[in-house]
Design a protein around this nucleic acid. Sequence first.
DNA 1: TACTTTGTTCGCAATTTCACGAACAACGAA
DNA 2: TTCGTTGTTCGTGAAATTGCGAACAAAGTA
Lengths: 109, 109
Amino acid sequence: MTKEIITKEQQKAARYAKAMGHPIRMYVLDLLSKQSCCYSGDLTEDLPIVKSTLSQHLKELKDAGLIQGEIEAPRIKYCLNKKSWKEAQELFRNFLKIDIEEPIQNCLK
Amino acid sequence: MTKEIITKEQQKAARYAKAMGHPIRMYVLDLLSKQSCCYSGDLTEDLPIVKSTLSQHLKELKDAGLIQGEIEAPRIKYCLNKKSWKEAQELFRNFLKIDIEEPIQNCLK
DNA sequence: TACTTTGTTCGCAATTTCACGAACAACGAA
DNA sequence: TTCGTTGTTCGTGAAATTGCGAACAAAGTA
């Protein structure tokens, strides 16, 4: 499948999109894009799923490269994988033709 | 599922992301974002899938609201659904922007 | 009215996703 | 060492996804 008409960029973007393609995972990513880190224990309290299901979703995000976990005492701290996140930003920015108002421009004023 | 901790925006973004979450569909969307329209007959020639499979992927994109088809002679012309595309742009722009801090830090130096 | 072209729908099979509970592993605290 | 907390893994089942070929529908053309 996928000869070579489909570019590497398109494949990577599709991979990221797939990981984002579930409400729970979108919620987690959105949270992490605002909050720098979170703990899955806190997530299970808010979200209407049991911990094993959440664990699977977090694994899905990890496999896609979007987040990473760090052991911290009894818990695990999750945060965005900044490198992959940047790549996803670039891919989607190009794909969606989004012009981002650069904060740099504000500085130049 | 999905009490109300998960916002409408997150659900919509996840829905769009899901539709984008396949190489074939990402290819089609990327093409349409550059080309204004295309015909599925031309797509089957390039892509390594048979027409019935492509039809399903196009249906998936239609169901997500991202594209629309228009009957034109014997063929069907596909193009982006501009309204939904705009919405997706907005959702992903808000969702993906986190690199704001870094340029600011550079400015403050 | 046939015939051709184009794309959808149907039926099928293999695989993946999603969700749950139970069991397990890791590790600090009593 | 034993206990409690935290999160992963396993086993299971239901549903969705992906892909194919065959059959069908629509519509222009001979």
